[in-house]
C-alpha cells in the first residue's frame, strides 16, 4: 500500500448527520449502556452497548448483531458514544473488520450534542433484519503473534495509547507513547486533519509505515488512535485489539522507565 492514498473520511459532522437522519439514509449506533440509551439518544439511533459486543466478538456473532441492527453492505453507519469517541471507535472498527466499508464516527460526543441543544429522543426505532455479507479484513487486526514478529521489522511503528504514567510503568518494548487525550481537539473527538498530521509528523509517524496501536485491555483508546491515523491518510494501520492485558497474561516481555519515582509527581 502506498503513502499517497487520499485521507479517508473517518468522522461525520453534526450538520451532515442531522440531514442524513432526516433523509433516513443512515444507521446511527449509540454504544452507551442500555439504561442511558433508553433515557434519551439521537433520534432514530439504535443501541449496541459496547459490553454486548465484547461479550462475544467473534465474526459470526458480530455479523448477527449487525444484521439485527438493520445494516447491510450498503448502509452508511455513524457511531457515537459519550466517552470521547473511544467506545464508538471500537464498535466502528469491528464493523470494518467484518467487511463494512461505510462506517464513520460522529465528530463529537453525545454529551456535547446535548449541551448544544440538538434534538434527542427516547423512542426505540422499529428495525427489520438485514443481510450483511462476511468479508473479514484481517489486515486491520494485529494478534499478539503477529505483533511479536512485526515488531522486529524497522518499518513498523507500535503506539501505546494509554496515559503517560501507565506507559512509563510498563509497556511493550519498542512502543512509543501517545496518550489518547492527545488525539482530541478542544471540542471534537479528533483533531482537525492538519493538526493531527503535524502531531504525527513531529513524532516521525508517517503514513507509509505499518502502524499498530494498542491500549490497556479491549482496544477502545487504541481504536480511537486507529481512526486518528486513518484521518491523516495512514493506509496501513492495525489495531492490537486484545492489547496490553493479553500481552501481560501471555507473559510476553515488557519495558519500563527505570530509576525515577514519577508516580509521586502525580497529584492523584
Amino acid at each position: 500500500m502506498c503513502c499517497l492514498t487520499p485521507s479517508v473520511k473517518v468522522t461525520t459532522d453534526i450538520d451532515s448527520l442531522r440531514s442524513e437522519i432526516r433523509d433516513k439514509s443512515v444507521r446511527v449506533i449509540d454504544v452507551r449502556r442500555e439504561g442511558d440509551y433508553k433515557q434519551d439518544h439521537i433520534p432514530n439511533s439504535v443501541n449496541l452497548p459496547l459490553a454486548t459486543l465484547l461479550s462475544d466478538d467473534s465474526p459470526e456473532r458480530v455479523l448477527k448483531l449487525v444484521n439485527s441492527l438493520g445494516i447491510d453492505d450498503e448502509t452508511p453507519v455513524v457511531v457515537y458514544d459519550d466517552t470521547f469517541g473511544a467506545l464508538a471507535s471500537r464498535v466502528a472498527w469491528t464493523l470494518e473488520w467484518i467487511g463494512h466499508s461505510d462506517v464513520t464516527l460522529l465528530e463529537t460526543t453525545y454529551g456535547n450534542w446535548k449541551s448544544l441543544g440538538l434534538e434527542t429522543d427516547s423512542l426505540t426505532p422499529e428495525i427489520s433484519n438485514k443481510e450483511h455479507s462476511m468479508n473479514l479484513q484481517s489486515d486491520i487486526l494485529a494478534t499478539s503473534d503477529y505483533l511479536e514478529s512485526a515488531k522486529l521489522r524497522d518499518d513498523v511503528i507500535l503506539i501505546d495509547n494509554r496515559e503517560r504514567l501507565n506507559y512509563l510503568e510498563q509497556h511493550i518494548p519498542g512502543a512509543v507513547s501517545l496518550p489518547y487525550r492527545t488525539l482530541a481537539s478542544a471540542d471534537g473527538i479528533l483533531r482537525p486533519k492538519e493538526d493531527m498530521k503535524r502531531l504525527f509528523d513531529n513524532r516521525g509517524i508517517s503514513g507509509d509505515s505499518e502502524i499498530i496501536t494498542y491500549c490497556g485491555s479491549v482496544g477502545t483508546l487504541s481504536g480511537l488512535a486507529y481512526y486518528a491515523l486513518k484521518s491523516t491518510g495512514a493506509s496501513n494501520a492495525k489495531l492490537y485489539v486484545r492489547s496490553f492485558k493479553e500481552w501481560k497474561n501471555l507473559e510476553k516481555p515488557t519495558d519500563k522507565q527505570e530509576d525515577a519515582n514519577y508516580w509521586d509527581l502525580s497529584a492523584e
Binding site: E163, R164, L165, L168, V176, S177, P179, R181, T182, A184, R198, L199, N202, R203, G204, Y262, L265, S266, A267, E268
Partner: peptide
C-alpha cells in the same frame, strides 16, 4: 495530553509539565 495528568507549581512562580515527549514540546 502531553504530561502525566497533573502539573507542578515551582517555588519561582512557574508551572511545570513533566515527562513530556521531546517531540511534543512544540505542540
Amino acid at each position: 495530553q502531553y504530561s502525566i495528568g497533573s502539573a507542578h507549581f515551582s517555588t519561582r512562580e512557574n508551572i511545570q509539565l513533566h515527562w513530556v515527549v521531546l517531540e511534543d514540546v512544540s505542540e
